[in-house]
Design a protein around this nucleic acid. Structure first.
Lengths: 335, 335
DNA sequence: TTGTATGCGTTATCAC
DNA sequence: GTGATAACGCATACAA
């Protein structure tokens, strides 16, 4: 392994001068710069980022901890983070927790030890402990993505769950639906609560008072959607429209409807939250509210890097990005 | 930030003793161990992995560079790598190149600078340069995943592309198909070549000599599958069976067939390579050859960690894991 | 079983 | 513009 010292010797300068050339910090004469660069190239010099990080207390690396890498929503968020980071010279370490609190803790521990400059965290649960731990042990800023954490003094970037589901519900109400079944994620996750609430509030404003009766709570997974749909249909009379509160739940719901021979939208209407790429459902027909996943990642990373740059502690920010209503063919008017 | 020195002072020992306790290296008396552990806990001590890595020349971290994080095949591989790594105390840094050579080079550069202990690489292209670069600059072992690289002296773990497609083809031949269209990935990738060859060889053994005429080369993507299917159908007469050489190509092919009103298997038979989780196609009916993705990741990581442990350079190994034929309902016998 | 001395490769600080 | 010196936090080598 060739070191900065080797390069310095070869170029006939002091190590610190090599450092200045490589980091473009401080003044270096043009001729010196050229000699140093030539020497580095000839020796195939590779900077040791461990040493740099140890000395400078900066690793130029962001941690991105998210809950489900198999969900296109999150891969899109990750892409936004990566692009924003690269644009400012940061690299990103991506960790997937599978919504598992223990895994999340393991990753967070390692990332703290590896001295990340900042953390982007989509919490597996809505407890503030992991955030507190980072803030206490890491002395690095944290930006939470997607999920609101009560009692945590921390920046947040998320989509407008409430507004998106409110808009979806209004759309269903306009079509004449009066009984809407909600297939929700875990009650302990803020997005679930907000999506359910947005739907119920919209119904209430239309003088539908029993909206809360048709809610099933489960997981944000295909299996969850499948079984919640099953339970929803067990009710008599069952809803005329279904609100699947995320993309995987929608797939599961569709699978069950197909199994029992109910057609969408002829027999029952269905709306979803967050989209799927063309590759997933061979016919893209689902009416959905879509969060700007890429922007959530991008703005989260930018905010985080701002915090890293000005370690001055401003008040925590909350950035809520609007969800877009995309109307396709999965709903039909009543009667 | 509290350091090993702080812990040592508090416990009334030398820093090196703290180090021994934390790393379970060397002899430490039970009473000393307890005092040190208590001190570390009270001070909320967090080891600095940058310093440790710099000093010890080991980061206990594997790099995993793959080509498409949105493909379930690769997320499964990644899971296998993660589990194997965790079992031996390694962490994993995952990087997604999107089959893009430039991105791959950027990631590899950073990973070398970060001093990974080993590299798992699914090359974006079949050139040996990236591998040579790691071997030259990093002095860390490399294990290549999934794709064979000519002229590279390097370990390889992959699925049996040739055998899998040979078996699929035999199955189609048994059903009486005599004209099989192949929708292939890029000609520059070894898996493409091998899957095509397995198919052609099986046909040749059945005395079908013109097998090579019905091959389309394209990308391993939904779009690629769609357009290759389109071109395949333009031929008159078109094949009675289609071999989609990866899961995304199969989806694209299905989409096009649906668009032109051809039913599978009534109007045309279809087989694929690698499976999709239930969440993807609402009805799992495709007959496929499946590579053991999880094992590829697991065995790749294990081999890599073996290499790291015994830096003695044995000859490069090539581990080819069998593909499994799963027969479902996407094929029909010929009249 | 524990400690001393030293150095990993780099950059911060200050001096010239 | 450039350099000398020290220090980041830890583990290796050797000594006691």
């Amino acid at each position: 392994m060739t070191t900065i010292q080797d390069v310095a010797t070869r170029a006939g300068v002091a190590p610190i001068t090599v450092s200045r050339v490589l980091n473009r910090s401080g003044y270096v004469s043009e001729s010196t710069r050229q000699r140093v660069e030539a020497a580095a190239a000839e020796l195939d010099y590779v900077p040791n980022l461990l040493a740099r990080g140890l000395r400078s207390n900066r690793t130029n690396t962001l941690a991105l901890v998210l809950t489900d890498i198999t969900n296109p929503f999150w891969t899109t968020v990750a892409r936004g983070v990566e692009d924003a980071a690269r644009a400012r010279g940061f690299s990103v370490i991506l960790c997937n927790t599978d919504e598992n609190e223990a895994k999340q803790e393991q990753y967070v521990d390692v990332l703290i030890r590896k001295r990340m400059d900042g953390f982007l965290l989509a919490p597996a649960r809505s407890t503030p402990e992991p955030i507190r731990k980072i803030q206490k042990q890491a002395d690095a800023p944290v930006v939470v993505l997607d999920r609101r954490i009560a009692d945590a003094q921390v920046d947040l970037v998320c989509g407008d769950s409430y507004g998106g589901s409110y808009a979806l519900t209004q759309y269903l109400l306009q079509l004449g639906h009066r009984c809407i079944g909600i297939l929700s994620g875990p009650q302990a996750v803020s997005t679930s609560v907000e999506r359910v609430q947005g739907c119920i509030d919209a119904m209430q404003e239309a003088n539908i008072e029993n909206g809360a009766e048709f809610v099933q709570f489960g997981e944000y997974t295909v299996e969850g959607g499948y079984s919640m749909m099953q339970q929803m249909l067990a009710r008599q009379p069952h809803p005329t429209a279904i609100f699947a509160t995320n993309n995987f739940i929608a797939i599961g719901a569709l699978q069950h409807l197909r199994n029992v021979g109910l057609r969408v939208p002829q027999d029952i209407s269905l709306v979803g939250f967050d989209d799927l790429p063309l590759s997933w459902n061979t016919e893209p027909f689902l009416t959905v509210a879509v969060q700007p996943a890429y922007q959530i990642g991008q703005q989260g990373a930018d905010l985080l890097m701002d915090r890293i740059a000005n370690s001055a502690q401003a008040n925590p920010q909350e950035i809520v990005l609007p969800a877009e209503l995309i109307i396709r063919q999965s709903c039909q008017p009543i009667g």
